[in-house]
Amino acid sequence: MVTLKVLLFIFVLSNNRNLFTFAQTRRCFDCVSVTSCEIALDYARMIRVGTLPNESRQVFMKAICGFDPYNRMPKVCCSDFPVVNTKTRGGIPEEDSNLSAESIENHRNVGLLPLHSCGDIDGARITGGEFAKLYEYPWMTLIAYNTTTMGQRFLCGGSIINSRYILTAAHCVILNGKFQNIAGVRIGELDYSTDTDCQGHGFNMICETKVQDIDVEEIIPHENFNELNKSAGGDIALLRLSEPIIMYNNAAPICLPLYDNLRTMSLAGLRGTVAGWGTMENNVQTTKLMKVEIPIKSRDECISSYRSPTVKTFCAGAMKKDSCSGDSGGPFMVESDFNGTIRLVQYGVVSFGKKCGDHPGVYTDVSKYMDWILDHIKE
């Protein structure tokens, strides 16, 4: 209740009589209830206690984009709020060096990631999910493993981040302290039970036969990953392919949260999409790519399901809607403003969870590992 009182205090202080008229015309991709925007709550608290200057109220007021009748609270464009560190030194917020534009946007390897042609949305708009469309998620990949009992099997997913690298989970590449026996990566697949993927009917039918199976040249798990305690963080890895991917209709990179506005955006309250070839609600393994849209939970909601989730993860899910076994390593995607264009940006990597669909799943927060990714890729 203290938080709500603080927000109401700031909200009422505005002398702008045209506030709600302005709010109704304000448009942004992350207009959510202020109670779901943790960075706005932090901002409000710091204004109230005087850590931020009084003029910062204008940032709060300009972020208002509507009204949430259920909570009877304003809605805000969550990405409008600059990150504020609640740890202070002499009353002044400490700078968070991990979010420094100097270390990310000016990184020596930033040019190795796609800055324009990534995360395209095709215009068509897993547990509790539905089948993905042909060409809808061309960055989705399957990781194949050589098993001793069942031959070669697809057991994890990943995403294309450029022509030589796949982003996945560390637990998909390490088992019992050793690298897993990865046979390769498949690119461009929709239904791996068939040689031809088709969509539509009659003269409107489109079919695709082109897939790429590429060997892995190098496995790069995060050095802090502990397979006995995935909640400790570091469940992220890169696979360097032995040859470049041929970019095609069904092979293209996903955008990563490269820019400052993406890395500092509060995710709580937003909705995103997870895709994969994992187990469905009837405990049957699907051979066709599925997708599901789910809400991102607040940190408090995540803590209620998991004792001590690291700040480098987030939770997402809804009843009977979740990532599940076999989806590991796949991307959690959110429509975002990527350098002036609305794209799908990968904010998460499927990490772990409890019983599928009963508790929110845990995702590695890619925005917290951008420096690590850039440090470990090469031409």
Results as ranks from 00 to 15, higher is better:
residue 234 G to M: 06
residue 193 S to N: 05
residue 252 A to M: 10
residue 239 L to E: 00
residue 183 A to H: 13
residue 182 I to T: 00
residue 219 I to V: 11
residue 261 N to F: 07
residue 201 H to W: 15
residue 259 Y to P: 11
residue 184 G to D: 00
residue 244 P to Y: 01
residue 235 D to A: 02
residue 203 F to R: 10
residue 225 F to K: 12
residue 202 G to A: 06
residue 182 I to W: 01
residue 228 L to F: 05
residue 215 D to M: 09
residue 248 Y to S: 10
residue 252 A to L: 12
residue 185 V to M: 09
residue 190 L to W: 11
residue 210 K to D: 08
residue 238 L to S: 07
residue 252 A to H: 15
residue 222 H to T: 04
residue 203 F to Q: 11
residue 186 R to H: 05
residue 219 I to R: 08
residue 216 V to S: 05
residue 239 L to S: 03
residue 230 K to L: 12
residue 254 I to C: 03
residue 183 A to I: 02
residue 245 I to G: 09
residue 223 E to Q: 06
residue 218 E to N: 07
residue 212 Q to R: 12
residue 257 P to T: 08
residue 208 E to R: 15
residue 233 G to I: 10
residue 232 A to G: 14
residue 222 H to M: 02
residue 246 I to R: 11
residue 220 I to Q: 01
residue 243 E to G: 06
residue 223 E to K: 11
residue 198 C to K: 04
residue 204 N to D: 06
residue 190 L to K: 11
residue 220 I to G: 02
residue 253 P to V: 08
residue 186 R to L: 15
residue 187 I to F: 01
residue 254 I to N: 11
residue 188 G to Y: 07
residue 240 R to W: 00
residue 199 Q to K: 07
residue 202 G to Q: 03
residue 255 C to G: 15
residue 202 G to L: 14
residue 212 Q to H: 01
residue 242 S to Q: 14
residue 204 N to F: 14
residue 221 P to F: 00
residue 256 L to G: 09
residue 194 T to D: 04
residue 248 Y to C: 14
residue 261 N to Q: 07
residue 182 I to M: 04
residue 212 Q to L: 00
residue 235 D to W: 05
residue 188 G to L: 08
residue 240 R to C: 01
residue 249 N to M: 07
residue 248 Y to E: 13
residue 211 V to F: 05
residue 262 L to P: 02
residue 183 A to S: 13
residue 229 N to Q: 12
residue 193 S to V: 06
residue 219 I to W: 04
residue 205 M to L: 14
residue 229 N to I: 01
residue 250 N to D: 15
residue 220 I to L: 00
residue 263 R to Q: 13
residue 231 S to E: 06
residue 233 G to V: 05
residue 208 E to Y: 13
